[in-house]
Design a binder for these strands. Structure first.
Lengths: 352, 352
DNA sequence: CTGAAAGCGCTTACAG
DNA sequence: CTGAAAGCGCTTACAG
């Protein structure tokens, strides 16, 4: 049906760009669509990209019909090559496999990824995940032409200049950027820590400890801020600042630390991650301690899991949905350098 | 430093392909590398792709030095355009958001994605996730040039021909393919159901029910096979086949169904998903029933969560790591049509 | 062992 | 409103 027009082309052009539908085995291309619709590839490109003011309605319809007829789907990789954005977002969970003992990963990451995927899809982005080392993920971002990278829980440090230079928009999530150079979404961690300690104080606890790895040299990472909040709450209640138990964020670390914490004289503990809290509670119960009577625990994150643990976990809700939406806004509008800090709230269940 | 050679080129060639490092603002390209190394782009391409037998060692070294000097990272999208594979895998969880009540997703998906990501990375693949409708994910796969799609838990049905026609390798995961046309990785579900019911029988239970949505018209889906196994175990013990309670796989469905199951006269229940089991146990406890004394429950999946639930969940381990490795093999070797069925095992904890 | 050139599928000035 | 052509960054026969 498209013979007529194509036969008008010079044989040279024809050999180079012209193909009938049957010639092709794989996906139809824009040239196939153009042939069927009897227009140029430029015109097809215009209507595919919605630049319909460049094209007459009738032509646009012909093109759309051809698209449908051929089952044409555009090749985004080719489009990206021409300077269009790749519309690819990557969620980077640095060294995901090493985040916890064994191969169990903090369930937070799963909840995060699937929530965020819904947002990304809604805005027409594709979503990749990567759990490698810094070197690996930088290479990944660059070679895939990723537009925006969400870095989940990265420790503060000098940021790889190569990402900035290559124009990948980095958004830190639950991280801290001392130099305020990257976009950032996180919870008000100081407030979170405050709410957690405050709850313990409210139920009459006097000897509050903090089960997290706070590096005294890095005043401004997430753990340090949660701790700062807890300290503040204790101060306001005339209590000593919480003693620190430097644990990693894993179930097994909680399990192992139970005895030491139980014997420390503490009657309340702020645990800056639900998964850690689950392990700790398990360990305390193995020792015959009652939670919350003997030792009350407040978790952090309000994961699905916090409802499964017995006693049910009192925890800090970090406002995941709100954060994920903020993330998407910053990415979509490319508000480089924007910072969004979401207020947490406490969810009181049974453990405190 | 590369002036010498480039000045030998014709001015035409030079204008079209030659650039000094400084001319470029964005990523260096293969042409930049070629210029610095004073070779042609073809040579650069050869050494980047490890076709070193095409290039002398000395030349290869020069190229590698130039790559390092410029911080060159190849553009995989451009490479894919030339017929190379995209090395992109997508994990498709159809309508992830609708898989459970509200927006909580079965934690299984998170565990799966991060386990699989490690495999994919190890083999040099990028991993995307998609949780949309069939129409959405087909478009996604096609426009991104995804090489292989892992379809997690898709109901059996006629498969979209467009994916096959466009050469995306579909691997079904925990699904069933009646026509045996797609690659497939799953657990031996019949055995899983058998082990679950067997455990209940072993601890003396006589009235076993099954809390899953088994469609009598589709003999061969995952749920039906688990049920088949449970029936078999009951038969061998001289018991009646388990009564069916058609629940969806969500915490809330378990919670809601507790009363009906508790009043059904059952003393043991096979629950084909840990998340469902968690909800059910919660509901049973709210009713004052003791698990396992009054009603024993066996879950399915052996999620991390099964250790947090009280009583700790006895469950069927589906061999996630083994399955994820099998998946990777099938994808990497492109064994289209391969089927791998992994044996499950029972993990006995407290709930049965 | 090395290079020039065509081509992958697309977009975008630029002419008409 | 429409089309011819250059170019995005890469790979791969094909010549030398």
């Amino acid at each position: 049906m498209s013979r007529e027009r194509s036969s008008r082309k010079s044989s040279n052009t024809r050999r180079r760009t012209r193909r009938t539908v049957k010639d092709r085995l794989g996906k139809p291309t824009i040239a196939d669509v153009a042939a069927v619709a009897e227009v140029s590839v430029a015109t097809v490109s215009y209507v595919i990209n919605g630049r319909t003011n460049e094209v007459s309605p009738a032509t646009a319809d012909r093109v759309r019909d051809a698209v449908r007829e051929l089952g044409y789907v555009r090749n985004l990789a080719a489009a990206a090559l021409t300077g269009k954005k790749s519309r690819l977002i990557a969620v980077i969970v640095p060294e995901a496999g090493k985040r916890t003992e064994g191969s169990d990963i903090n369930p937070f990451y799963g909840e995060f990824v699937f929530r965020f995927e819904q947002q990304a899809r809604k805005y027409g982005y594709g979503l990749c995940v990567h759990g490698g080392t810094e070197e690996e993920y930088i290479q990944f971002l660059l070679e895939r032409g990723v537009e925006s990278a969400v870095l989940v829980g990265v420790p503060e440090r000098a940021f790889p200049e190569s990402l900035v230079r290559n124009d990948v928009h980095c958004v830190l999530y639950d991280s801290f950027d001392h130099n305020r150079v990257h976009s950032l979404v996180r919870t008000n961690e100081v407030k979170g820590g405050y709410l957690a300690a405050e709850r313990l104080i409210d139920i009459g606890k006097k000897h509050i400890v903090f089960a997290g790895d706070v590096d005294p040299n890095r005043k401004n990472d997430v753990m340090a801020m949660r701790y700062e909040g807890a300290v503040k709450a204790c101060e306001m209640a005339g209590l000593n600042p919480p003693r620190l138990f430097p644990l990693q964020t894993s179930y097994d670390d909680g399990l192992r630390a139970a005895e030491e914490i139980a014997n420390s004289g503490a009657d309340g503990v702020v645990v800056p991650a639900d998964i850690l809290a689950a392990g700790l509670i398990e360990g305390l119960q193995n020792l015959g301690r009652n939670v919350p009577a003997h030792l009350a625990v407040v978790g952090y994150d309000n994961l699905q899991m916090s409802r499964f643990v017995r006693p049910r976990l009192t925890t800090i809700d970090q406002g995941l949905q709100e954060k994920v939406e903020a993330l998407m806004q910053i990415i979509h509008n490319r508000n480089v350098g924007d910072i969004r800090i979401i207020d947490p709230r406490i969810v009181v269940r049974e453990s405190a």
